[in-house]
Write a protein that binds this DNA or RNA. Sequence first.
DNA 1: TTATCTCTGGATAATAATTATCCATAACAC
DNA 2: GTGTTATGGATAATTATTATCCAGAGATAA
Lengths: 154, 154
Amino acid sequence: MKSDRQPPMTDGKQRLENMLEALKSRGYRITPQRLAILKILAQSRGHPSVESIHKEVKAVFPTTSLATIYKTLTLLKELGQVLELGFADWGSRYDGNRPYPHPHIICTKCGAIVDPESESMSVMTQEMSQASGFRITHHRLDFFGLCPQCQKEE
Amino acid sequence: MKSDRQPPMTDGKQRLENMLEALKSRGYRITPQRLAILKILAQSRGHPSVESIHKEVKAVFPTTSLATIYKTLTLLKELGQVLELGFADWGSRYDGNRPYPHPHIICTKCGAIVDPESESMSVMTQEMSQASGFRITHHRLDFFGLCPQCQKEE
DNA sequence: TTATCTCTGGATAATAATTATCCATAACAC
DNA sequence: GTGTTATGGATAATTATTATCCAGAGATAA
Ligand SMILES: [Mn+2]
Ligand SMILES: [Mn+2]
Ligand SMILES: [Zn+2]
Ligand SMILES: [Zn+2]
Protein backbone atom coordinates (compact mmCIF):
# COMPACT_ATOMS: atom_id res chain seq x y z
CA MET A 1 0.00 0.00 0.00
CA LYS A 2 2.56 2.50 1.05
CA SER A 3 4.89 3.88 -1.50
CA ASP A 4 8.16 2.58 -2.75
CA ARG A 5 9.69 5.86 -1.69
CA GLN A 6 12.68 5.30 0.53
CA PRO A 7 12.67 7.30 3.75
CA PRO A 8 16.16 8.23 4.95
CA MET A 9 17.25 7.63 8.51
CA THR A 10 16.51 11.24 9.31
CA ASP A 11 14.97 13.96 7.19
CA GLY A 12 17.07 16.39 5.25
CA LYS A 13 16.72 19.09 7.87
CA GLN A 14 18.14 16.96 10.63
CA ARG A 15 20.99 15.75 8.46
CA LEU A 16 21.91 19.30 7.56
CA GLU A 17 22.08 20.17 11.24
CA ASN A 18 24.31 17.20 11.92
CA MET A 19 26.68 18.16 9.14
CA LEU A 20 26.83 21.78 10.24
CA GLU A 21 27.54 20.72 13.79
CA ALA A 22 30.27 18.34 12.65
CA LEU A 23 31.99 21.22 10.88
CA LYS A 24 31.48 23.88 13.52
CA SER A 25 32.52 21.70 16.43
CA ARG A 26 35.88 21.14 14.80
CA GLY A 27 36.47 24.77 13.96
CA TYR A 28 35.69 24.65 10.26
CA ARG A 29 34.01 27.73 8.84
CA ILE A 30 30.55 27.70 7.39
CA THR A 31 30.94 29.48 4.09
CA PRO A 32 28.09 30.11 1.65
CA GLN A 33 29.58 27.59 -0.77
CA ARG A 34 29.88 24.92 1.88
CA LEU A 35 26.37 25.55 3.10
CA ALA A 36 25.06 25.17 -0.42
CA ILE A 37 26.88 21.86 -0.85
CA LEU A 38 25.66 20.55 2.50
CA LYS A 39 22.08 21.39 1.61
CA ILE A 40 22.33 19.52 -1.65
CA LEU A 41 23.80 16.47 0.06
CA ALA A 42 21.27 16.53 2.85
CA GLN A 43 18.29 16.83 0.57
CA SER A 44 19.22 14.77 -2.43
CA ARG A 45 18.16 11.18 -2.50
CA GLY A 46 19.77 10.33 -5.81
CA HIS A 47 23.47 9.99 -4.91
CA PRO A 48 24.68 13.05 -6.81
CA SER A 49 27.95 13.25 -8.70
CA VAL A 50 30.59 15.93 -8.29
CA GLU A 51 29.49 17.44 -11.56
CA SER A 52 25.82 17.59 -10.63
CA ILE A 53 26.63 19.16 -7.27
CA HIS A 54 28.85 21.67 -9.01
CA LYS A 55 26.12 22.57 -11.45
CA GLU A 56 23.61 23.10 -8.66
CA VAL A 57 25.94 25.22 -6.58
CA LYS A 58 26.91 27.34 -9.57
CA ALA A 59 23.24 28.20 -10.06
CA VAL A 60 23.51 30.17 -6.81
CA PHE A 61 27.22 31.09 -6.77
CA PRO A 62 28.31 31.19 -10.39
CA THR A 63 32.03 31.48 -9.71
CA THR A 64 32.23 28.31 -7.64
CA SER A 65 35.15 26.14 -8.66
CA LEU A 66 35.06 22.41 -9.11
CA ALA A 67 37.95 22.24 -6.66
CA THR A 68 35.72 23.63 -3.94
CA ILE A 69 33.27 20.78 -4.41
CA TYR A 70 36.07 18.26 -4.17
CA LYS A 71 37.57 19.92 -1.11
CA THR A 72 34.27 20.01 0.73
CA LEU A 73 33.50 16.41 -0.11
CA THR A 74 36.92 15.32 1.10
CA LEU A 75 36.34 17.17 4.33
CA LEU A 76 32.94 15.61 4.85
CA LYS A 77 34.37 12.19 4.15
CA GLU A 78 36.99 12.71 6.84
CA LEU A 79 34.28 13.70 9.28
CA GLY A 80 32.22 10.65 8.37
CA GLN A 81 29.36 12.81 7.13
CA VAL A 82 29.16 11.52 3.59
CA LEU A 83 29.56 8.13 1.95
CA GLU A 84 31.56 8.07 -1.25
CA LEU A 85 30.75 5.50 -3.88
CA GLY A 86 33.92 5.43 -5.94
CA PHE A 87 33.78 3.80 -9.36
CA ALA A 88 36.76 2.83 -11.44
CA ASP A 89 35.21 3.68 -14.81
CA TRP A 90 33.32 6.85 -14.11
CA GLY A 91 33.11 9.56 -11.47
CA SER A 92 32.20 9.04 -7.83
CA ARG A 93 28.72 9.42 -6.39
CA TYR A 94 27.88 10.60 -2.91
CA ASP A 95 25.32 9.78 -0.24
CA GLY A 96 24.87 12.48 2.40
CA ASN A 97 21.84 10.86 3.96
CA ARG A 98 23.30 7.53 4.97
CA PRO A 99 27.01 8.11 5.54
CA TYR A 100 27.69 4.49 6.48
CA PRO A 101 28.11 1.33 4.33
CA HIS A 102 24.88 0.09 2.83
CA PRO A 103 23.86 -1.71 -0.37
CA HIS A 104 23.08 0.11 -3.58
CA ILE A 105 21.31 -0.76 -6.80
CA ILE A 106 22.75 0.89 -9.85
CA CYS A 107 21.20 1.21 -13.29
CA THR A 108 23.89 0.52 -15.86
CA LYS A 109 21.96 2.44 -18.50
CA CYS A 110 20.87 5.73 -16.93
CA GLY A 111 23.13 5.75 -13.88
CA ALA A 112 20.37 5.93 -11.29
CA ILE A 113 21.41 4.75 -7.85
CA VAL A 114 18.92 3.83 -5.15
CA ASP A 115 19.07 2.61 -1.56
CA PRO A 116 17.23 -0.65 -1.02
CA GLU A 117 16.20 -1.63 2.46
CA SER A 118 18.33 -4.43 3.78
CA GLU A 119 19.71 -5.74 7.00
CA SER A 120 21.34 -9.06 6.24
CA MET A 121 24.78 -7.54 5.74
CA SER A 122 25.83 -7.64 9.37
CA VAL A 123 25.43 -11.39 9.66
CA MET A 124 27.30 -11.91 6.44
CA THR A 125 30.11 -9.67 7.66
CA GLN A 126 30.32 -11.77 10.80
CA GLU A 127 30.63 -14.96 8.77
CA MET A 128 33.33 -13.49 6.55
CA SER A 129 35.39 -12.29 9.47
CA GLN A 130 35.11 -15.67 11.13
CA ALA A 131 36.10 -17.67 8.08
CA SER A 132 38.95 -15.47 6.88
CA GLY A 133 40.55 -14.21 10.05
CA PHE A 134 40.31 -10.65 8.77
CA ARG A 135 39.28 -7.86 11.12
CA ILE A 136 36.63 -6.32 8.90
CA THR A 137 36.07 -2.59 9.14
CA HIS A 138 33.64 -1.83 6.35
CA HIS A 139 32.19 -3.15 3.14
CA ARG A 140 30.77 -2.22 -0.21
CA LEU A 141 27.87 -3.92 -1.93
CA ASP A 142 26.58 -2.87 -5.35
CA PHE A 143 23.94 -4.52 -7.46
CA PHE A 144 23.91 -3.65 -11.14
CA GLY A 145 21.05 -3.91 -13.58
CA LEU A 146 18.29 -2.03 -15.35
CA CYS A 147 15.90 0.21 -13.47
CA PRO A 148 12.15 -0.13 -14.16
CA GLN A 149 12.16 2.98 -16.34
CA CYS A 150 15.01 1.77 -18.55
CA GLN A 151 13.43 -1.67 -18.83
CA LYS A 152 10.36 -0.09 -20.40
CA GLU A 153 12.44 1.84 -22.89
CA GLU A 154 14.18 -1.29 -24.08
CA MET B 1 38.25 -31.53 8.36
CA LYS B 2 38.91 -30.17 4.93
CA SER B 3 41.51 -27.51 4.51
CA ASP B 4 41.05 -23.78 4.52
CA ARG B 5 42.72 -23.64 1.16
CA GLN B 6 40.41 -22.28 -1.44
CA PRO B 7 40.05 -24.59 -4.39
CA PRO B 8 39.04 -22.79 -7.57
CA MET B 9 36.23 -24.11 -9.69
CA THR B 10 38.81 -25.80 -11.86
CA ASP B 11 42.55 -26.05 -11.48
CA GLY B 12 44.92 -23.71 -13.23
CA LYS B 13 45.50 -26.13 -16.09
CA GLN B 14 41.85 -26.45 -16.91
CA ARG B 15 41.32 -22.71 -16.69
CA LEU B 16 44.17 -22.09 -19.10
CA GLU B 17 42.58 -24.48 -21.56
CA ASN B 18 39.26 -22.69 -21.25
CA MET B 19 40.84 -19.33 -21.89
CA LEU B 20 42.81 -20.57 -24.87
CA GLU B 21 39.70 -22.12 -26.34
CA ALA B 22 37.74 -18.90 -25.81
CA LEU B 23 40.34 -17.02 -27.80
CA LYS B 24 40.90 -19.57 -30.56
CA SER B 25 37.24 -20.25 -31.16
CA ARG B 26 36.71 -16.60 -31.95
CA GLY B 27 39.69 -16.27 -34.22
CA TYR B 28 42.05 -14.49 -31.88
CA ARG B 29 45.69 -15.38 -32.23
CA ILE B 30 47.69 -17.03 -29.49
CA THR B 31 50.84 -14.99 -29.20
CA PRO B 32 53.65 -15.71 -26.76
CA GLN B 33 52.74 -12.58 -24.79
CA ARG B 34 49.10 -13.56 -24.55
CA LEU B 35 49.97 -17.07 -23.52
CA ALA B 36 52.20 -15.74 -20.76
CA ILE B 37 49.43 -13.50 -19.48
CA LEU B 38 46.88 -16.31 -19.57
CA LYS B 39 49.18 -18.56 -17.59
CA ILE B 40 49.64 -15.95 -14.91
CA LEU B 41 45.91 -15.37 -14.64
CA ALA B 42 45.12 -19.06 -14.59
CA GLN B 43 47.63 -19.90 -11.92
CA SER B 44 47.59 -16.91 -9.64
CA ARG B 45 45.32 -16.98 -6.64
CA GLY B 46 46.13 -13.51 -5.40
CA HIS B 47 44.17 -11.25 -7.79
CA PRO B 48 47.17 -9.69 -9.55
CA SER B 49 47.38 -6.09 -10.66
CA VAL B 50 48.27 -4.87 -14.12
CA GLU B 51 51.69 -3.90 -12.86
CA SER B 52 52.43 -7.26 -11.28
CA ILE B 53 51.32 -9.08 -14.42
CA HIS B 54 53.49 -6.80 -16.49
CA LYS B 55 56.48 -7.43 -14.30
CA GLU B 56 56.04 -11.20 -14.54
CA VAL B 57 55.62 -11.17 -18.30
CA LYS B 58 58.63 -8.94 -18.78
CA ALA B 59 60.73 -11.53 -16.97
CA VAL B 60 60.16 -13.76 -20.00
CA PHE B 61 59.62 -11.19 -22.77
CA PRO B 62 61.50 -8.08 -21.68
CA THR B 63 60.13 -5.80 -24.39
CA THR B 64 56.49 -6.38 -23.45
CA SER B 65 54.57 -3.15 -23.24
CA LEU B 66 52.11 -2.23 -20.54
CA ALA B 67 49.60 -1.59 -23.31
CA THR B 68 49.72 -5.25 -24.24
CA ILE B 69 48.68 -6.25 -20.75
CA TYR B 70 45.77 -3.83 -20.86
CA LYS B 71 44.70 -4.98 -24.31
CA THR B 72 44.74 -8.63 -23.35
CA LEU B 73 42.84 -8.01 -20.14
CA THR B 74 40.21 -6.01 -22.02
CA LEU B 75 39.85 -8.84 -24.47
CA LEU B 76 39.48 -11.44 -21.74
CA LYS B 77 36.91 -9.30 -20.00
CA GLU B 78 34.85 -9.14 -23.18
CA LEU B 79 35.01 -12.91 -23.46
CA GLY B 80 33.97 -13.31 -19.83
CA GLN B 81 37.23 -15.06 -18.99
CA VAL B 82 38.43 -12.71 -16.28
CA LEU B 83 36.78 -10.73 -13.51
CA GLU B 84 37.98 -7.19 -13.07
CA LEU B 85 37.91 -5.62 -9.63
CA GLY B 86 38.07 -1.94 -10.43
CA PHE B 87 38.91 0.46 -7.62
CA ALA B 88 38.47 4.19 -7.71
CA ASP B 89 41.58 5.04 -5.68
CA TRP B 90 44.13 2.57 -6.96
CA GLY B 91 44.65 0.22 -9.89
CA SER B 92 42.40 -2.67 -10.83
CA ARG B 93 42.95 -6.26 -9.75
CA TYR B 94 42.03 -9.36 -11.74
CA ASP B 95 40.66 -12.81 -11.04
CA GLY B 96 41.22 -15.33 -13.82
CA ASN B 97 40.08 -18.29 -11.77
CA ARG B 98 36.55 -17.23 -10.96
CA PRO B 99 35.46 -14.93 -13.77
CA TYR B 100 32.01 -14.34 -12.30
CA PRO B 101 30.80 -12.08 -9.46
CA HIS B 102 31.80 -13.28 -6.02
CA PRO B 103 32.69 -11.65 -2.69
CA HIS B 104 36.19 -10.51 -1.83
CA ILE B 105 38.00 -9.62 1.35
CA ILE B 106 40.57 -6.89 0.95
CA CYS B 107 43.32 -5.89 3.33
CA THR B 108 43.49 -2.11 3.46
CA LYS B 109 47.08 -2.20 4.64
CA CYS B 110 48.93 -4.66 2.40
CA GLY B 111 46.43 -4.95 -0.46
CA ALA B 112 45.91 -8.69 -0.20
CA ILE B 113 42.68 -9.91 -1.75
CA VAL B 114 41.20 -13.33 -1.01
CA ASP B 115 38.13 -15.27 -2.10
CA PRO B 116 35.98 -16.39 0.83
CA GLU B 117 33.51 -19.19 0.35
CA SER B 118 29.99 -17.91 0.26
CA GLU B 119 26.68 -18.68 -1.32
CA SER B 120 24.15 -16.36 0.27
CA MET B 121 24.48 -13.76 -2.47
CA SER B 122 21.94 -15.32 -4.81
CA VAL B 123 19.10 -15.10 -2.31
CA MET B 124 20.02 -11.54 -1.49
CA THR B 125 20.07 -10.66 -5.17
CA GLN B 126 16.61 -12.13 -5.49
CA GLU B 127 15.31 -9.99 -2.64
CA MET B 128 16.87 -6.84 -4.08
CA SER B 129 15.39 -7.42 -7.48
CA GLN B 130 11.99 -8.06 -5.98
CA ALA B 131 11.98 -4.98 -3.78
CA SER B 132 13.41 -2.50 -6.28
CA GLY B 133 11.97 -3.59 -9.59
CA PHE B 134 15.44 -3.63 -11.11
CA ARG B 135 16.45 -6.44 -13.44
CA ILE B 136 19.75 -7.27 -11.77
CA THR B 137 22.55 -8.54 -13.97
CA HIS B 138 25.55 -8.68 -11.66
CA HIS B 139 26.91 -7.44 -8.39
CA ARG B 140 30.03 -6.53 -6.49
CA LEU B 141 30.70 -7.25 -2.85
CA ASP B 142 33.89 -6.21 -1.10
CA PHE B 143 34.76 -6.51 2.57
CA PHE B 144 37.59 -4.33 3.82
CA GLY B 145 39.76 -4.84 6.85
CA LEU B 146 43.08 -6.11 8.13
CA CYS B 147 44.39 -9.53 7.16
CA PRO B 148 45.74 -11.81 9.93
CA GLN B 149 49.34 -11.00 9.00
CA CYS B 150 48.82 -7.22 9.17
CA GLN B 151 46.95 -7.55 12.45
CA LYS B 152 50.02 -9.12 14.01
CA GLU B 153 52.26 -6.34 12.76
CA GLU B 154 50.11 -3.67 14.36
C1' DT C 1 34.51 49.60 13.72
C1' DT C 2 38.96 48.23 12.91
C1' DA C 3 43.00 45.46 13.03
C1' DT C 4 44.74 40.94 12.85
C1' DC C 5 45.22 36.32 11.76
C1' DT C 6 44.02 32.21 9.64
C1' DC C 7 41.05 29.51 6.74
C1' DT C 8 39.00 29.00 2.39
C1' DG C 9 37.80 29.68 -2.57
C1' DG C 10 39.14 30.09 -7.28
C1' DA C 11 42.38 29.37 -10.90
C1' DT C 12 45.41 26.38 -12.68
C1' DA C 13 49.03 22.92 -12.94
C1' DA C 14 50.15 18.26 -11.82
C1' DT C 15 49.08 13.33 -11.28
C1' DA C 16 48.18 8.72 -12.63
C1' DA C 17 45.56 4.86 -14.45
C1' DT C 18 43.75 3.75 -18.56
C1' DT C 19 42.75 4.24 -23.57
C1' DA C 20 43.71 5.66 -28.34
C1' DT C 21 46.76 5.85 -32.26
C1' DC C 22 50.13 4.36 -35.49
C1' DC C 23 52.77 1.15 -38.02
C1' DA C 24 56.17 -2.63 -38.53
C1' DT C 25 55.87 -7.48 -37.93
C1' DA C 26 54.48 -11.89 -36.21
C1' DA C 27 50.69 -15.41 -36.54
C1' DC C 28 48.26 -18.47 -39.15
C1' DA C 29 45.23 -20.23 -43.00
C1' DC C 30 46.12 -21.65 -47.42
C1' DG D 1 56.48 -20.44 -48.24
C1' DT D 2 53.18 -16.64 -49.20
C1' DG D 3 49.72 -13.27 -48.28
C1' DT D 4 46.57 -11.29 -45.32
C1' DT D 5 45.54 -9.23 -41.17
C1' DA D 6 45.55 -9.11 -36.25
C1' DT D 7 48.81 -7.85 -32.78
C1' DG D 8 52.71 -5.74 -30.11
C1' DG D 9 55.37 -1.84 -28.84
C1' DA D 10 56.00 3.02 -28.43
C1' DT D 11 53.91 6.97 -27.26
C1' DA D 12 50.34 10.54 -27.09
C1' DA D 13 45.85 11.55 -25.28
C1' DT D 14 42.28 11.32 -21.92
C1' DT D 15 40.02 12.25 -17.62
C1' DA D 16 38.84 12.25 -12.75
C1' DT D 17 41.03 13.79 -8.97
C1' DT D 18 44.67 16.18 -6.22
C1' DA D 19 48.21 19.70 -5.31
C1' DT D 20 49.64 24.43 -5.33
C1' DC D 21 49.35 29.27 -4.75
C1' DC D 22 47.60 33.46 -3.07
C1' DA D 23 44.02 37.09 -2.63
C1' DG D 24 40.34 37.82 0.18
C1' DA D 25 36.59 36.34 3.34
C1' DG D 26 35.40 34.99 8.06
C1' DA D 27 36.25 34.93 12.88
C1' DT D 28 37.80 37.23 16.99
C1' DA D 29 39.09 40.69 20.11
C1' DA D 30 40.15 45.51 21.06
MN1 LIG E 1 22.91 5.28 -0.50
MN1 LIG F 1 38.26 -13.59 -6.58
ZN1 LIG G 1 17.82 3.35 -15.67
ZN1 LIG H 1 47.43 -7.28 5.10
